[in-house]
């Protein structure tokens, strides 16, 4: 079946170098998320009181919390440069107009993120600004991941549109799940930066878990013979399971660590892993959304390219 399909989708030219560059930017951004989470968990956000310089220079003393904060700033600068490169490359080489604008959106995101980072320092970490900084980090990561997907060889292929006659359509399910996860990440960031308590984040966790199970279940049942969607469902199941365990562990560790006069390793490790796994859940759901929109039709669509899952599996 696959051999009979044209390799390249109409209007799309696969550029392997651009795709590798986008994947590198996405992976580097994940490292930045880890570095940012380490700053928060080690209570080092204000260890460098000035911005954009650090202790009035580009080479601050690397002691205590300064190591976390300055490393975060250096990696962020590298991501900023990578994003400028990505935006310029997309603008010059990409034939799809909306992709060129995605590059501009990523560039705007990284600039805004830098401004928010500076504001957190210069305004002494007001919870709304810190939470916005943490949230925009997730949005920027998602944007770069989406660019990596859109520049991939898989996306460039001519692919069939599969029938999804059941209700609710899996397209709707996966989008609502992604929206819920994003809102949940906002609630998590707000809790982490002391904007409000844990209850909204716990309620969000229940809703997200239900939605992920509904989405992954629908994908498994309706597209059991489509490897891409089946694998998406499997990854979502694994990630939400791991994330729930990490969430419980992170919360316990925060309560346990409160008796200590300084951040302890178990708390730092669990909260950082929980935070970045949240980013992975969002990214996985986003990728699932894109794949779903690429493959699964909205209900019984008319047209020659619509196939049943059995046809695709043959």
């Amino acid at each position: 079946m696959k051999a009979s399909l044209p390799l390249v989708r109409m209007g799309t030219v696969y550029n392997s170098n651009m795709h590798r560059y986008a994947v590198t930017t996405a992976c580097s951004t994940f490292l930045l998320l880890i570095a940012g989470a380490l700053v928060t968990s080690n209570d080092a956000g204000l260890s460098i009181p000035d911005w954009p310089l650090a202790y009035g220079s580009l080479t601050p003393p690397m002691v205590g919390g300064i190591r976390y904060e300055f490393t975060h700033r250096v990696i962020a600068t590298c991501i900023g440069l990578l994003t400028i490169g990505l935006a310029v490359w997309l603008w010059r080489a990409e034939k799809r107009g909306w992709m060129r604008w995605m590059g501009i959106a990523a560039l705007g995101g990284v600039i805004a993120q830098g401004i928010l980072g500076g504001m957190t320092v210069r305004m002494f970490q007001p919870p709304p600004v810190s939470a916005a900084h943490a949230t925009l980090a997730q949005l920027f990561f998602s944007t770069v991941v989406a660019i990596a997907v859109f520049t991939s060889p898989w996306w460039s292929r001519e692919l069939p549109t599969l029938e999804d006659p059941k209700s609710p359509p899996v397209r709707s399910l996966v989008v609502w799940t992604a929206v819920a996860i994003f809102l949940q990440l906002i609630l998590g960031a707000a809790f982490r930066h002391k904007a409000f308590g844990i209850i909204p984040h716990l309620i969000g966790a229940v809703i997200v878990t239900i939605l992920i199970f509904m989405t992954a279940g629908a994908l498994k049942r309706r597209f059991a013979n489509v490897p891409a969607l089946r694998n998406c469902a499997r990854i979502l199941h694994i990630l939400i399971g791991v994330q729930l365990l990490l969430g419980g562990g992170a919360y316990w560790s925060r309560i346990y660590a409160a008796q200590f006069p300084q951040p302890i390793a178990v708390m730092v490790a669990l909260t950082v892993i929980h935070t970045v796994t949240g980013a992975l859940v969002l990214a996985a759901t986003l990728v699932t959304s894109l794949i779903t929109y690429r493959l699964a039709g909205a209900g019984k669509l008319a047209g020659e390219s619509i196939r049943t899952t059995e046809q695709v599996a043959q």
Binding site: G108, I111, A112, G114, I115, G118, M123
Partner: peptide
């Protein structure tokens, strides 16, 4: 719809200038 290179650079520079000069800061 086209955007000039100068426009993009101006946007980026303006945002950074805003960040440096207008983000609260220690009083």
């Amino acid at each position: 719809m086209k955007i000039t290179r100068l426009g993009i650079y101006s946007l980026a520079l303006g945002a950074f200038a805003l960040a440096i000069t207008g983000c609260g800061g220690k009083k």
